[in-house]
Amino acid sequence: MHQSPAGQPSDPRDPASPAPAATPAPAPAPAAAPAARLASLAGALADETRAAICMALLEGRAWTAGELARITGVAPSTMTGHLVRLEEAGVCVTERQGRHRYVRIADAATARLVDGLASFAIPDRDAAHAVPVVGAPDPLARARTCYDHFAGRLGMAVTDAMERGGLLRTDGVFELTAAGREWCAGAGVDLVQTGRRPLVSACLDWTERRRHLGGLAGARLCTRALDAGWVGRPASGGRGLLVTAAGERAFTELLGIGPEAYA
């Protein structure tokens, strides 16, 4: 019980009693200094297994943790710890697609950083790490629909061509440029939005392990191609697509991609 100035116990219910001293609020944790953040990033990369993970991801594809464990020769439980460290450092991100989770380099700026470090350390390094990843029948890997937009090698060829032509920004969040909107209008791709679906989205391709064009623009481009006879469905049905002779001409004229890009 508190003591009054005369040494007598004070009654906390008495308004005249002195209020107990307030407990000071804890001071906010200081932000990490720039040098500490740089050291954290360098520490995340300063491990041979994590460096091998980054080298594999530089190819541009996304991989599951199990695949990365096989590539680098470590146990899946060990791989989990390495991926947590890389994600905390902002080097990698994980995306869920269906039942699977895929790991990729966080963004183009991070990829350039890792690639620059690799080029500095290994001037004569080999070409990008190549591991077979396609588990689908080849027709599906070549061209198919992913929900209602292009996927497979055709989907990636279209996405890459739009990015090269300045029609689509793919660094981080996908975004259709002003030139891309004009291109869609010229190609007969209707972009009128009637619901809440985003105009453009990035969808992780499960055979190519890269992000292809989705969203309303991707769906309307696929619809345009089906309606115009640029692509068709095989007699057996399913999600596979066949690029017709008219489609080969259209893709070449509109995007500069020939059949070899999606063969």
Rank of each mutant, 00 (worst) to 15 (best):
A219D: 03
T194Y: 08
E48H: 11
R164N: 11
H82G: 02
A75P: 11
A106T: 12
A161F: 08
I257Y: 07
G247I: 07
P234K: 14
E260G: 04
G116K: 05
E208K: 06
R142Q: 15
E88Q: 15
R239K: 07
T23R: 12
A219Q: 02
T110G: 01
G166M: 13
L113Q: 05
A130Y: 02
A225P: 00
S77A: 15
D171N: 10
V192E: 09
V84R: 14
G214W: 00
P123D: 05
V231D: 00
R169H: 15
T170I: 10
T145D: 00
R70P: 01
G214D: 03
R209P: 13
T159F: 10
A16H: 12
A250R: 13
V114W: 14
F251S: 04
A27V: 12
G237L: 05
G155D: 02
P28F: 07
A118C: 10
A128Y: 10
D107K: 06
P5A: 13
P132C: 09
R99K: 08
R196C: 04
A19L: 10
I257S: 06
D138N: 02
H100Y: 04
P34G: 06
A245N: 10
A62V: 13
P5V: 10
A35C: 04
T170R: 11
D148S: 14
H100R: 09
H149G: 06
G98N: 09
E260C: 01
V131D: 01
P234V: 13
C146W: 04
G218K: 01
I105T: 08
V158W: 14
F150L: 15
H212W: 03
G238N: 06
T177E: 11
F174Y: 12
G98Y: 07
P34N: 02
D115G: 15
R220N: 09
G180R: 09
G43Y: 12
T72V: 11
P139K: 03
T223P: 00
H100F: 06
D227Y: 00
R112I: 04
A187W: 15
G66P: 00
A19S: 08
V231N: 00
A65Q: 13
T145P: 02
D14K: 13
D227P: 01
G256Y: 14
R239G: 01
R181I: 01
R104H: 13
A118G: 11
D205H: 04
W63Q: 05
T244K: 02
A219W: 02
I53R: 07
R211G: 04
R181S: 08
G256C: 14
G229F: 07
